[in-house]
Write a protein that binds this DNA or RNA. Structure first.
Lengths: 152, 152
DNA sequence: CTCCAGTAGTTCGTGCTAAGAACTATGTAT
DNA sequence: ATACATAGTTCTTAGCACGAACTACTGGAG
């Protein structure tokens, strides 16, 4: 089995849920004056600074796409480029204080919103859903674009 | 309960799964020479023709954003604007033959890919996941951007 | 019938996103 | 020292998304 008709259930579920999450994410970003990509950038950087290369790998973008994204974030004062002392080619992108504040607010608001999506489910089902999604995610090596654990 | 710490499980799961699906969708689109948005447009139109207004509502876009999207799809010969005989302001966007073929191929390929994401799960868990996502989706009134049932 | 408010789409201007190719500068191995 | 690889940027092209202003048509109210 595996490749049969009823798979459409999971497929449609995943695609639509993803559509839903995208919409929520976009709305949340908009509310904070961010684009989705900028929001993602901030969320990734909440964990730690990244070089342009790692950032590209994490976000699934070419390096040339990143330059602009980071440029705009710099222009908005959300992010700073620090040069890596160990490698003068390299750069570390770091949140500014303002960027961190915004990132945290945005992150919290987005979490709240996404959590609301699953609000209708009883707690047990929510946990089950989390477990199943967790497995899917783990088996497909998704980079951590959104925090793993609450590690503040 | 409801708004507690362990909700992060569902939230992170949803967000990352969504990231995963987005990536798969983008890759699939790219392979077919489409952008994600064009792919979405085609998938929506597989079901039936839409007016610009409905299309905007379904895809979550402003009408001004749609003009261009449809224009480009028209330029590529994937879609056609038919004027509604009952309302001369209105337009119905319809797949061309070429557009339908491409849409069907793209849809099938994307389904396959998304299904692969859940491949690691035993069938019973896949069904459970589908059911849970189905509930989330239903309770949040997601427009049908991806087919509901296999209605060929 | 006329006027007018509302609806369906388009146009225009702005800013953002994404990619590839060509390039600079630095690092590393031989 | 040469030569190759790596980290980022620049430039160009194409597409996306929005709001504001606009055109064209519709459906009522007087």
């Amino acid at each position: 089995m595996g490749k049969h008709g009823e798979d459409l259930g999971v497929v449609a579920g995943l695609v639509r849920a993803s559509f839903l999450v995208n919409a929520v994410y976009a709305e949340s970003a908009r509310e904070y004056g961010l684009t989705v990509q900028q929001g993602q950038l901030l969320c990734v950087l909440m964990g730690r600074p990244y070089g342009m290369g790692d950032l590209g790998a994490t976000l699934g973008l070419e390096k040339s796409s990143l330059t602009g994204l980071v440029d705009r974030a710099v222009r908005r004062g959300l992010v700073r480029r620090e040069s890596d002392p160990d490698d003068r080619r390299a750069v570390r992108v770091v949140l500014t204080a303002e960027g961190r504040d915004l990132a945290e607010d945005f992150y919290a608001a987005t979490c709240r919103r996404v959590a609301d999506l699953a609000d209708g489910l009883p707690a047990a089902d929510r946990e089950k859903l989390a477990a199943l999604l967790g497995r899917v995610v783990r088996e497909n090596q998704v980079p951590t674009v959104f925090l793993d654990a609450v590690q503040r």
